[in-house]
């Protein structure tokens, strides 16, 4: 069991490290495109974090009942083995929302390049005056 605790903590730690790296990218990225990449990674890591909350040790199974005529035993087995469906529901929503924002940001970056001729943050600030 100790080893499993270690693995779980390692997972959280790795996610935190990724989150910090991507936050750094968002803040310090020289180009808007780099900021966009960092932003997508940041959102994905938040999603991974909530999925990590929904898992458990032991025998697990996706939250899909594999039969259309379940008996009571089937349902009991399902409840005891399936992983948490709530984070999955939240994450699907969040994935779509992040994707929508990223699409829009992409359109904006292209438009800004048309107007300013660059995507470097510093240059844009200079051109803006």
């Amino acid at each position: 069991m100790n080893f499993e605790i270690f693995l779980q903590l390692y997972g959280y730690l790795a996610l935190m490290v990724i989150m910090v790296i991507s936050l750094y990218g968002i803040v310090r990225g020289a180009s808007l495109i780099k900021k966009l990449i960092a932003l997508t990674i940041f959102g994905d890591t938040a999603n991974a974090l909530i999925i990590f909350l929904g898992f458990k040790f032991g025998e697990i199974y996706p939250p899909v009942l594999p039969t259309l005529k379940p008996t009571l035993e089937d349902i009991a087995w399902f409840v005891s083995t399936a992983v948490d469906p709530v984070p999955q529901c939240l994450v699907i929503t969040a994935v779509v929302i992040n994707m929508a924002i990223t699409m829009f940001l992409a359109f904006l970056v292209i438009q800004i390049y048309r107007l300013y001729g660059t995507t470097m943050v510093k240059k844009i600030a200079k051109l803006k005056g």
């Binding site: 069991m1 779980q8 898992f55 458990k56 040790f57 032991g58 939250p63 399936a82 709530v86």
Partner: peptide, 16 residues
Amino acid sequence: WTPLTEIRLLAKFYLE
């Protein structure tokens, strides 16, 4: 608690 061996009650309700 870490590590989890049970899921949250709300999720159990949905699954059930």
